[in-house]
Design a protein around this nucleic acid. Structure first.
Lengths: 110, 110
DNA sequence: AACCAATAGGTTGCCACGCAATATATACCC
DNA sequence: GGGTATATATTGCGTGGCAACCTATTGGTT
């Protein structure tokens, strides 16, 4: 997968992996990697700013979680607005793939 | 369709619409629009530089065509390398949609 | 004749956004 | 003590499609 591949679709990915339940940043990276079969390897410089942005937009909420003695995790969860946004992202994705697919592979009505 | 949507997939679109036969810039824009059902409206600032780039890369070749008295069109056609590249773009597209789709809509093995 | 939309080609500069690089610290295993 | 995995975060860069702009021809309408 070429670099910059997720451009324009990152928000949907983040919202999607948070749908089943809250996760912290590091776990989000591994979740995206696992769910994509290893194809998508997000970097910290990619997701941490993105998570902040989504929280600022009200689509995510975060809280610190303690693990062990001194270890902290910032745990993100979907807000209601986030859930609605995820639905929108899924609709957009369908439109997008349909449009590009129709041009790239005409006559393959998939 | 949000602006910047085709980012990263433009080359494939251009190569794909040129597969059936040569077209000039303006016709490429309408072809992409038609084949996408009106979803993709490329701008001249998008395709003219892109066509030049693809020609420089050897994926396209161009020639001036006269139409009417004083009118000229720059006609682009696929080279052999362009045809091979198109195959690669289609493979990339499949990988890409599979990866993103798996994260965005898990359990919908499509 | 005047006007306008469609056809046709082109350039320039902006800026959003993911990424590479870098930094810090804990936890665990050998 | 060394190496790897876990965990969070910031900074600066490059890219690439797009908005905005420009010129010119063609053909239809009024």
């Amino acid at each position: 997968m070429k670099a910059d591949a997720v451009r324009g679709h990152l928000d949907g990915l983040l919202l999607a992996v948070l749908e089943p339940g809250p996760l912290h940043g590091y776990a989000i990276i591994t979740s995206v990697m696992n769910r994509s079969g290893g194809a998508l390897e997000l970097r910290t410089g990619t997701i941490y700013p993105a998570l902040k942005r989504l929280e600022r937009l009200g689509l995510l909420a975060s809280s610190w979680e303690s693990v062990g003695e001194r270890r902290r995790r910032r745990c993100y969860r979907l807000t209601d607005a986030g859930r609605r946004s995820l639905a929108g992202e899924r609709a957009d994705w369908r439109e997008f793939t349909t449009a590009i697919g129709a041009v790239l592979n005409p006559g393959s009505n998939a």
